[in-house]
Write a protein that binds this DNA or RNA. Structure first.
Length: 278
DNA sequence: TACATTGTTCCGTC
DNA sequence: CGACGGAACAATGT
């Protein structure tokens, strides 16, 4: 699943492939992914998504790629930008012209002959045309500080996480801290030795210090290990699981040997080690 | 077949 | 009324 590190890697890839190149053709193969706002609802699709993207990007260059939390944006050299959310299966790939791309939704053909594709099998992702001078606002709206770019001191993290909800649920709340999803929330909690079911407000100072240190550590570790090529997600066939607890129910904890447990919190699977996350 | 997965939204409860 | 939990919704591969 694309969370902060995967979106950051996607942004780095787009900077290599896209920045400075001119867009010579725009193909919208699924008009429903072009939306007015962050949403999965078909009713929020732009009326003429193809026309909108072509008007914004034909003949334009991408001058910048930005990221906040799990959101990214392509900033054009004209008046327009494109906000992107990868949803649960979105990714960007580059291919030679004429190469078919399964689940390709938007195709940007460049002046070097490459085609940069937004690919999204599950179609929970979207692209949102916006004015360039609104892109920073749109990127940050409703989000807490970016978990990697703005690492929080322990006391700041504690303040942002003041809720009776479980700490794992609070960590995934993008309004409190932007970037953690299911995988990196449970991995950071495992690294910090904190039980994901604990009430967030009940953590002590040492536990906040541990989390403040382990969250950026988890994200940076993932960046270092996922490389800078095309993204492959853990749920895809043939991709092995690089994580300590995520999707490892019943397997021995690599730190203490106890069996990894699973519980559902707010409708999402949580994995943790009952032995060393007391 | 039912399930898993995301962010958003809505509804009921306290 | 704010906080919170839970469920629904979108789509589709396994």
């Amino acid at each position: 699943m694309p969370e902060l590190p995967e979106v950051e890697i996607a942004a780095r890839g787009l900077r290599r492939w896209l920045v400075g190149r001119s867009v010579v053709e725009v193909g919208v193969h699924d008009v429903k992914v072009v939306r007015r706002k962050l949403s999965t609802l078909p009713s929020d699709a732009v009326e003429d998504g193809t026309g909108a993207l072509r008007a914004d990007w034909l003949g334009r260059r991408v001058s910048e790629v930005r990221r906040v939390g799990k959101r990214m944006a392509l900033v054009g050299n004209g008046p327009r930008a494109l906000l992107v959310h990868l949803g649960m299966s979105g990714k960007w790939v580059t291919r030679d012209a004429e190469v078919p791309v399964k689940h390709g939704r938007v195709a940007l053909t460049l002046d070097d002959g490459q085609v940069v594709w937004f690919v999204d099998p599950r179609r929970f992702g979207c692209v949102i045309p916006v004015d360039r001078d609104e892109v920073d606002t749109a990127l940050a709206k409703g989000l807490g500080p970016d978990a990697l770019d703005t690492p929080l001191a322990a006391n700041e993290l504690q303040e942002r996480m003041q809720t009776r909800s479980a700490i794992k649920v609070a960590l995934m709340d993008q309004q409190r801290l932007a970037g953690l999803g299911n995988i990196h929330a449970v991995e950071a909690l495992w690294r910090a030795g904190v039980d994901p079911r604990r009430a967030s407000s009940s953590l002590d100072a040492a536990e906040w210090r541990a989390l403040a240190r382990r969250i950026p550590e988890q994200l940076q570790w993932t960046l270092d290990h996922e490389g800078d090529g095309e993204m492959n997600y853990i749920n895809e066939a043939g991709v092995d699981n690089p994580f300590a607890v995520y999707a490892r129910e019943g397997e021995p904890c690599r730190r203490c040997g106890d069996a990894i447990a699973r519980v559902v919190q707010s409708g999402r699977s949580t994995f943790w080690c009952p032995g060393c996350q007391a």
